[in-house]
Design a binder for these strands. Structure first.
Lengths: 150, 150
DNA sequence: ATTCGTGCAAATAGTTTGCAGCAGA
DNA sequence: TCTGCTGCAAACTATTTGCACGAAT
């Protein structure tokens, strides 16, 4: 969730990243970013289309690919039928993990605690030393039942 | 990776779970379990078919669904084109996390350290108290470049 | 005898892409 | 003007499913 006052600076940052990726800022891309910023949780393509009924499905798919390449959005793939998309963490300045409901498929954000981040980074160092794997990102998902489904 | 001596007890455990789920133990299911046990890393359907060229693709898909419902295998969905499957952790007795190469898509297992597990469980407690979410499993993936792609 | 797993081929569905028109630089 | 974004419809592909046969109980 992004406060209204931060929306224009968000669009500036998005514009910069698009430009850096050799892409333009367009109304459709702004619209997609707006929907994701307003939602504050990862959305599916149908959810995005529902919020903006004037957009063509193919354009949303195409622009999400571009926004992903530009580092603006992040694609989350679960076992559910649709992939989900959210704004990149370094744009919203909020590192978080996911609570995935195995019953209804909804995905909620959960703030990352200092403790867990420290532990993860220690583990990453260990893995790099042991295996030579170069970690660029990590992902922590808790799978279970949301309050509604429990 | 499962040592040969453990294979028969593995099949016993699989058989029990299948029976509990109202399913039979069949040669095809044994074959799939064998391939996964021998691999020691999550495999795609094409990889499974390659190891057992006499199996029909649809049978493998169908049996993986059944084995998943019986709690024998676990499905891993990444952004790669194919889903991957591995034996359930409580069958192999080995809790691990994943190293996902964003370049070639290969997924390797990494042992879970005590430190990170403690931190994760503290975080889970926090989340349960704060949100009412009931966590049944967690997933930690490190995304980056494997030794070959780096 | 009947239930259930298997293999083949056809169907399904999320996602991608070709193409013609149009808008911004 | 020229590049490239958009919308529509068609194509693509991982996965699922209908059906008939054979195996196991």
């Amino acid at each position: 969730m992004v406060a209204p006052a931060e929306v224009s600076s968000l669009h500036d940052a998005v514009s910069t990243r698009l430009h850096h990726a050799g892409q333009r800022r367009t109304p459709t891309r702004d619209a997609v970013v707006d929907v994701l910023a307003a939602a504050g949780r990862p959305l599916t393509i149908p959810e995005i289309l529902e919020a903006h009924t004037d957009l063509a499905q193919s354009s949303v798919y195409r622009n999400l690919v571009i926004l992903e390449q530009a580092g603006v959005v992040h694609r989350i793939v679960t076992n559910a039928e649709f992939a989900r998309f959210e704004l990149a963490e370094d744009l919203t300045g909020d590192h978080h993990h996911h609570l995935i409901c195995s019953s209804c498929g909804v995905v909620a954000d959960a703030p990352a605690s200092d403790g867990i981040e420290r532990a993860v980074h220690r583990a990453i160092d260990e893995v790099e030393r042991a295996t030579g794997f170069r970690t660029t990102a990590h992902r922590i998902d808790l799978v279970g039942l949301c309050r509604n489904c429990a």
